[in-house]
């Protein structure tokens, strides 16, 4: 009984700590008052203003575009890295390749952002590309740090499944390309999907690298939100938080329900 009490107490305190700030933010998003913390009355005012705020809407659209493109390219290259490192033994300077594909994982984003910005400026001086900082430079930067995360996921999936299946196919005369598309790709499909999703959220959530590499017309959502809340509070951002939380909760719930129905089968 004592143990059960300790367990319930720990979980209650733990989850309250995780959820209390988020729930408070959602509650205050319905506050009529412009002064965020002084309650005046229930209203949808800030939701209305949020949906009329051109700057936020445009940034949201930019973020979605960059995140989906970045996730797609990062996944393609992450699969290539995972496949190369687990299936191809002869890679020139293999340790260097391993170093390159894993160190973005431990590189502080501030250093990554700084180095990429200085690189873009220099390369613009030397070869004129990229012609200006903007969506393209943010996209390139996001792909660069996401690739490593996808590669880790793909690699762990590829090294944990039975390679004999591929070798059997090879013995039966299947050409390597066919082996990849017919056997390897379907096996790692769940890993590909979770890699894409992770790369997507990494890009959507990034503020630091994007702040360094962005230029005119490429303000992502975190950049706009940060500029609004850096010095003070913003009731529109409260409304935005509530909407994002709702999307995340719905996504998590649907994953939970899909998993449960799969287990039942």
């Amino acid at each position: 009984m004592n143990k059960l009490f300790l367990k319930i107490l720990t979980l209650t305190i733990g989850f309250s700590f995780l959820y209390f700030p988020i729930l408070t933010l959602i509650a205050y998003s319905f506050n009529e008052n412009k002064r965020v913390m002084v309650w005046k009355g229930f209203s949808f005012r800030w939701y209305k203003e949020l949906f009329q705020n051109e700057q936020i809407l445009e940034a949201f659209y930019t973020s979605l575009k960059i995140a989906s493109l970045s996730a797609t390219f990062a996944t393609i290259m992450g699969v290539m890295i995972g496949f190369s490192l687990t299936r191809i033994s002869k890679i020139p300077a293999r340790p260097f390749f391993i170093f390159l594909s894993s160190s973005p994982l431990v590189m502080p984003e501030i250093i990554l952002g700084l180095s990429l910005l200085l690189f873009f400026i220099s390369s613009n001086h030397i070869i004129g590309f990229p012609s200006s900082k903007g969506q393209l430079t943010v996209l390139i930067s996001h792909i660069t740090f996401s690739v490593a995360f996808v590669a880790v996921i793909i690699q762990s999936r590829l090294s944990s499944y039975d390679k004999n299946i591929e070798e059997a196919a090879q013995d039966l005369g299947t050409i390597p390309n066919m082996i990849f598309w017919k056997i390897t790709a379907p096996v790692i499909l769940p890993a590909i999907l979770s890699g894409w999703l992770l790369a997507f959220t990494l890009s959507l959530d990034d503020l630091v690298v994007a702040s360094f590499t962005t230029g005119p017309g490429a303000n992502t959502l975190p950049i706009v939100v940060f500029s609004k809340v850096r010095l003070g509070l913003s009731p529109e951002v409260n409304a935005l938080s509530a909407i994002i939380m709702l999307i995340v909760i719905l996504a998590a719930l649907s994953i939970y329900l899909i998993n449960r129905s799969n287990i039942k089968k």
Binding site: L25, L253, N259
Partner: peptide, 29 residues
Amino acid sequence: NILLIMLIIPFWSSFLLRVYAWKVLLQGS
């Protein structure tokens, strides 16, 4: 499984907004 989903929800929601939430909570008012 329910608790796990509850752990993942804050993990997936925006980093910046979770920091902002504490800024709101810790205000003088």
